[in-house]
């Protein structure tokens, strides 16, 4: 490579290190705050050296919650996990099935369905907010996991991604399986599914994060504290009013809210980048 070395190099590294530090700084401060006592946090300027109350704060958060909110974060984590898993796997399953139908079958309403799925791209929750809430309420799905997850499970992006992928599978593979005696579902199970593994993994990372980070939807659908996801839970803890906020516990909860999705991204980085780039094609 040309001119990779030389006097620009240290500047390049400096830019990157500054970028990394800026990106990391808010998290670091949060982490420090989650290891201090409330008094230490309120004692401005707050120290930037981690304190000794880490375990205590996390234990309080996980098993009792803040005094005002009194909802243990462990339950919220479980709710978030259920929501993220159901949304991610639900989207993948129904998208795989509909992409399979659209690519491998000829049937009269094929294009109608295709466009119907496409249109969902243009209808985020925000643009149909009240009527969608009303539908969920009429179906008596408020404050329930089905209400929290099912309406988010339709996915044009995932359907298009799988459709795109199925189109790259050579026709001869279908024909060979026909001659081998496999029917459509057998072909789906024995050939398409195993071949889609990397795409499924990539999409799973993206969709897990999507599900975990939902905010507006659970805000609308759940009022019962037992249904709180962790992201909503933080908001409730902060609603206590400035003098009442137990910052160390809130910050511990914030850390707990970030750890699972960040871990998924860092551990599955390869699939994450693939999923991100592919699903935008």
């Amino acid at each position: 490579m040309i001119e990779k070395k030389g006097m620009g190099t240290w500047l390049t590294h400096a830019v990157l290190i500054l970028g990394v530090l800026t990106v990391a700084f808010p998290i670091y401060v949060t982490f420090v705050a989650s290891s201090l006592t409330l008094r230490e946090v309120l004692d401005a300027p707050m120290t930037l050296i981690p304190g000794s109350h880490l375990v205590e704060n996390y234990r309080t958060a996980l098993f009792s919650g803040t005094r005002m909110n009194a909802t243990p974060v462990a339950g919220m984590l479980l709710n978030s996990l259920i929501m993220a898993l159901v949304i991610a796997s639900g989207k993948i399953v129904i998208s795989l099935l509909s992409a399979f139908a659209v690519v491998y079958f000829r049937f009269p309403l094929r294009m109608v369905f295709f466009w119907m799925i496409f249109i969902t791209l243009m209808l985020p929750v925000e643009v149909r907010i009240l009527p969608t809430f009303k539908v969920v309420s009429d179906l008596e799905m408020l404050n329930s996991f089905p209400g929290l997850t099912i309406p988010l499970i339709a996915s044009a992006t995932a359907t298009f991604l799988f459709r795109q992928f199925f189109m790259t599978i050579p026709d001869e593979l279908v024909e060979a399986s026909k001659i081998d005696g496999a029917g459509p579902m057998r072909f789906f199970r024995d050939v398409l599914l195993p071949l889609s593994r990397t795409n499924i993994a990539a999409l799973f990372v993206i969709l897990f994060i999507y599900g975990w980070n939902q905010y507006l939807w659970p805000l609308l659908i759940t009022t019962d504290h037992r249904m709180d996801t962790i992201v909503i839970g933080i908001r409730r803890m902060l609603a206590a009013g400035d003098d009442q906020i137990e910052w160390p516990v809130v910050m511990a909860t914030t850390m707990l809210a970030m750890i699972p999705p960040v871990l998924v991204v860092v551990v599955m980085q390869r699939w994450f980048v693939k999923g991100l780039v592919d699903s935008e094609k």
């Binding site: 099935l97 000829r106 309403l109 119907m116």
Partner: peptide, 26 residues
């Protein structure tokens, strides 16, 4: 593309996606 000509199966396959789309989107 090369495919299958079942009459009912494709509708069953797209049903979940289409029902959710109709009820919660359209």
């Amino acid at each position: 593309r090369v495919g299958y000509s079942n009459k009912v199966l494709p509708y069953i396959l797209v049903a979940p996606q289409v029902i959710i789309t109709l009820v919660f989107f359209i």
